[in-house]
């Protein structure tokens, strides 16, 4: 933090000296007034100043290069590596976790347990900035972030407000697929200047996924669905968990023509899907499955015969949508297929 300030100020000092003024205006329209000691510094020997400047330049040269990043709202220029980042969706926290960067604020719905343990263990403490649905702008701005990463779906309407607080990147999080999220993860790595670290971590990830894909080789159909007492929503290959399953070379029982990510599924539709494996994330203790089990039609289902109905943590399979959660999903499937 201090390092960035030093560069900033030292750049200012140099600029001020060449322009023979103690006030600088940068491209964003911000005015900087030189501090008293900086004015004194200008008057001191040029040699000392150059040495100081070059030294600080050498230490932090990586951070000075401005990065241009394409995101869902155009292009954002990041002039220095952000250090205080606020994320408004879990998938971005996952992306920062593999870049070894701790966000200062997360829209975690006020419940730290909503973040999956593998992400939580990699990042330091953060402050909640409210719900993902409606994050508190006040809480975000009180954290004085220098970068905000928001969901282009949920936070479309507050984009301008977020931009007023700090430079904001908008990426897809809700309804993102595995492949889309990989690209987003790489962009976030670029934004926080951790491309090499993230690439090497992703290499590990691809090896794991590749190993499991080669291992699975199954003709069975696999389905993940979230259930509650009000109904079942099947996650198709256009959802995150569904696309991870597809990435592992496993078949989906859902017709590929159906492009909805989450499909509201009644018992009749479920009988038609009739998957060999069903992974369910439960929102409530009692669910529609308990009701369906009492129906004579339940006997027709393959999961009834094979007992391949597995309850999984909903946070990892449905909410997280990140690289780390994809690994969790893949490993869970591995442990179930070959116990």
């Amino acid at each position: 933090m201090g390092c960035f300030k030093a560069i900033d100020r030292s750049q200012l000092v140099v600029l001020a000296k060449t322009k023979k003024t103690n006030e600088i205006k940068n491209g964003n329209g911000y005015h900087y007034r030189l501090l008293f000691y900086e004015v004194i510094m200008i008057q001191r020997s040029t040699l000392l100043l150059s040495i100081l400047f070059i030294a600080s330049f050498g230490v932090c040269s990586a951070q000075i290069q401005a990065i241009e990043l394409e995101h869902d709202k155009g292009t954002l220029v990041i002039k220095k590596t952000p250090s205080r980042i606020v994320v408004l969706a879990f998938s971005f926290a996952d992306a920062l976790a593999i870049a070894d960067v701790s966000p200062v604020g997360i829209a975690d719905d006020g419940d730290i347990n909503k973040l999956i343990p593998s992400v939580r263990s990699r990042i330091g403490t953060w402050q909640s900035v409210g719900s993902r649905y409606q994050p508190s702008l006040e809480a975000i701005s009180s954290l004085k972030p220098d970068l905000i990463i928001a969901d282009s779906g949920r936070h479309q309407s507050i984009y301008n407000d977020l931009m007023a607080i700090a430079p904001t990147l908008m990426f897809k999080s809700q309804g993102v697929t595995y492949r889309e999220n990989l690209q987003i993860t790489q962009k976030i790595a670029k934004a926080v200047n951790k491309v090499d670290l993230v690439n090497s971590r992703l290499e590990e990830h691809f090896q794991l996924m590749g190993r499991l894909k080669a291992k699975f080789k199954s003709n069975d159909t696999f389905q993940f669905a979230v259930i509650s007492d009000k109904g079942m929503w099947a996650h198709s290959p256009d959802s995150y968990a569904g696309s991870v399953i597809a990435e592992l070379g496993l078949n989906s029982p859902i017709d590929s023509k159906n492009k909805n990510a989450y499909i509201s599924t009644g018992f009749e539709q479920f009988i038609k899907l009739n998957p060999d494996w069903l992974f369910v994330g439960k929102y409530t203790n009692r669910t529609v499955l308990d009701k369906w089990k009492e129906s004579p039609l339940w006997k027709l289902l393959k999961i009834n015969k094979s007992k391949q109905l597995i309850s999984v943590p909903i946070n990892e399979w449905s909410l997280a949508s990140g690289v780390l959660s994809a690994e969790k999903i893949a490993l869970e499937i591995e442990s179930q297929i070959q116990p």
Partner: peptide, 23 residues
């Protein structure tokens, strides 16, 4: 519903009046 967020999805279906779970 605002507090529930992701739970809201399943509740919203019921709140609009749905016959899909009838037996």
């Amino acid at each position: 519903l605002i507090i529930a967020d992701d739970m809201a999805y399943s509740l919203l279906h019921w709140l609009s009046g749905s016959l899909s779970g009838i037996d």
